[in-house]
């Protein structure tokens, strides 16, 4: 059997919000390591990869590796039925046709039990090679969300340029041009609120704001976001979630024809 109990159930709600607009359906792969998911959006332009490590649950039991084929919209609807302070347990049999979500209130006076049918999903798993990135930019997650929101008012795409002066986000549209420049903070330790840039090579790449905006749905999960950029490669946008794992998004760049 599979059983994973998450004391901070609100995390599962937030993970769900962070993927449901990007991915329609996906397999949640449950193993001894934890719960992982990898899926592309329907147009195969972006990819989301998440890991919830087993030690983030209490308890976690996985007798046999299983894949839970889940329709994200349906699961998101069920997750909305959980209160923010509920403890969430995910449970299924070894050869499951369905999965059960149990929501317990903190004082255990209320227990909700939702059973959801599973789907057979042909998952296309992509191997993501270790990449030497030209620039790794860490910044407050809320700042990145704000930049994506503001530049979406100007154009469809953002050009991310990183050099020794800092990082610049720029967008261009019918009405004009918008540019947002961030300098690296003087303090080097990576505390919340800091912008830090690890630069190997100056780099400039263009990405669709529509997808970056989908990625920023993960903002409630982490205070910091990391953008790893490399010439002619997808950008990796990572939100590390304390004590349990991460959600990473990859987005293919736009190129000039």
């Amino acid at each position: 059997m599979f059983e994973a109990r998450l004391v901070q159930g609100s995390l599962m709600k937030k993970f769900m919000e962070a993927i449901k607009d990007l991915v329609k359906e996906a397999n949640w792969d449950c193993t001894g390591t934890g719960i992982s998911l990898q899926a592309m959006d329907t147009s195969h332009v972006s990819l989301v990869s998440l890991l919830l490590r087993s030690d983030g649950f209490d308890p976690y039991r996985c007798d046999r590796n299983i894949s839970l084929g889940i329709n994200m919209e349906s699961m998101a609807k069920i997750m909305k039925c959980a209160s923010n302070d509920d403890v969430i347990t995910i449970r299924s049999e070894d050869h499951p046709d369905n999965v059960t979500f149990v929501f317990e209130s903190p004082n255990q006076e209320k227990v909700c039990d939702y059973e959801m049918k599973l789907m057979d999903i042909d998952s296309e798993h992509l191997g993501i090679p270790d990449t030497e990135y030209d620039a790794i930019i860490s910044m407050p997650a809320s700042e990145f969300q704000r930049i994506c929101r503001d530049l979406s008012n100007i154009g469809d795409s953002v050009k991310i340029t990183c050099n020794k002066d800092g990082v610049q986000f720029s967008a261009q549209g019918d009405t004009g041009i918008g540019k947002i420049a961030l300098k690296q903070n003087a303090v080097i330790d990576k505390e919340d609120g800091q912008v830090s840039i690890e630069l190997n090579d100056p780099v400039s790449l263009t990405f669709a704001l529509r997808y970056l905006t989908f990625f920023t749905k993960a903002t409630p999960l982490a205070s910091t976001v990391t953008l790893s950029v490399s010439a002619k490669n997808p950008v990796a946008v990572e939100y590390r979630v304390d004590d349990i794992g991460y959600i990473r998004y990859y987005l293919a760049p736009k190129i000039e024809e």
């Binding site: 592309m40 195969h44 990819l47 296309e124 992509l126 191997g127 795409s157 997808p234 736009k254 024809e257």
Partner: peptide, 14 residues
């Protein structure tokens, strides 16, 4: 003109 690339042109199936 900017062309959106797809994910599969970068990563192989595992």
């Amino acid at each position: 003109l900017l062309i959106q690339q797809g994910m599969k042109s970068f990563y192989q199936f595992a």
